[in-house]
Amino acid sequence: MRSSIIASLLSAVTVVYGYANPMACSGECGNAHDPALIRRDDGKYYRFSTGNKISIHTAPSITGPWTYKGAAIPNGSKINLKGKDDLWAPDVTKVGNTYYLYYSVSSFGSQDSAIGVATSTNLDTWTDLGATGIASKAGKNYNAIDPALYWDGSKFVMSFGSFWGDLFSTNMQNPPVKAAAGAAAIGIAFKPEGEHAQEGAFIAKNGNYHYLFFSFGKCCHFDQNRPAKGQEYKIQVCRSTSATGGFVDKAGKKCTEGGGTTVLESHGFVYGPGGQGVYYDPKLGPVLYYHYVDTRIGYADGQKKFGINQINFSSGWPVV
Results as ranks from 00 to 15, higher is better:
Leu87Cys: 08
Leu87Ile: 11
Leu87Asn: 09
Leu87Asp: 10
Trp88Glu: 07
Trp88Lys: 02
Trp88Gln: 00
Ala89Val: 05
Ala89Phe: 05
Ala89Pro: 13
Pro90Ile: 01
Pro90Ser: 04
Pro90Ala: 09
Pro90Asn: 03
Val92Phe: 02
Thr93Met: 05
Thr93Arg: 12
Thr93Cys: 03
Lys94Ser: 10
Lys94Ala: 07
Lys94Gly: 06
Lys94Asn: 07
Lys94Trp: 08
Val95Arg: 11
Val95Trp: 06
Val95Glu: 14
Val95Ser: 15
Asn97Gly: 14
Asn97Met: 11
Thr98Asn: 11
Tyr99Ala: 08
Tyr99Arg: 11
Tyr99Gln: 10
Tyr99Val: 01
Tyr100Trp: 06
Tyr100Asp: 06
Tyr100Cys: 04
Tyr100His: 07
Leu101Asn: 09
Leu101Thr: 11
Leu101Ser: 12
Tyr102Leu: 03
Tyr103Pro: 14
Tyr103Asn: 10
Tyr103Ser: 11
Tyr103His: 06
Tyr103Phe: 07
Ser104Thr: 02
Val105Phe: 02
Val105Ile: 02
Val105Lys: 03
Val105Ala: 07
Ser106Cys: 05
Ser106Phe: 07
Ser106Gly: 04
Ser106Tyr: 08
Ser107Glu: 14
Ser107Gln: 10
Phe108Tyr: 15
Phe108Ser: 12
Phe108Gly: 10
Phe108Ile: 11
Gly109Glu: 04
Gly109Met: 10
Gly109Gln: 09
Gly109Asn: 07
Ser110Phe: 10
Gln111Glu: 12
Gln111Thr: 14
Gln111Lys: 14
Asp112Trp: 11
Asp112Thr: 15
Ser113Ile: 02
Ser113Ala: 13
Ser113Lys: 06
Ser113His: 06
Ala114Phe: 00
Ala114Glu: 12
Ala114Arg: 03
Ile115Ser: 01
Ile115Val: 15
Ile115Ala: 04
Ile115Asn: 06
Ile115Lys: 00
Gly116Ala: 14
Gly116Lys: 00
Gly116Gln: 01
Gly116Ser: 05
Val117Leu: 07
Val117Gly: 02
Val117Trp: 01
Ala118Gly: 06
Ala118Thr: 04
Thr119Cys: 09
Ser120Val: 05
Ser120Tyr: 04
Ser120Ala: 09
Ser120Thr: 10
Ser120Asn: 12
Thr121Cys: 08
Thr121Asn: 15
Thr121Met: 13
Thr121Phe: 10
Asn122Lys: 13
Asn122His: 05
Asn122Ile: 14
Asn122Leu: 10
Leu123Gly: 13
Leu123Ser: 14
Leu123Arg: 03
Leu123Val: 09
Leu123Glu: 06
Leu123Trp: 01
Asp124Thr: 15
Thr125Glu: 13
Thr125Ala: 08
Thr127Gln: 12
Thr127Met: 12
Thr127Glu: 15
Thr127Ile: 14
Thr127Lys: 13
Thr127Leu: 11
Asp128Lys: 05
Asp128Gly: 13
Asp128Ala: 13
Asp128Phe: 11
Asp128His: 08
Leu129Arg: 12
Leu129Ala: 09
Gly130Gln: 09
Gly130Ile: 06
Gly130Ala: 12
Gly130Asp: 09
Ala131Pro: 00
Ala131Phe: 02
Thr132Phe: 01
Thr132Gln: 04
Thr132Tyr: 01
Thr132Gly: 00
Thr132Trp: 10
Thr132Ile: 03
Thr132Ser: 03
Gly133Phe: 02
Gly133Pro: 01
Ile134Gln: 00
Ile134His: 00
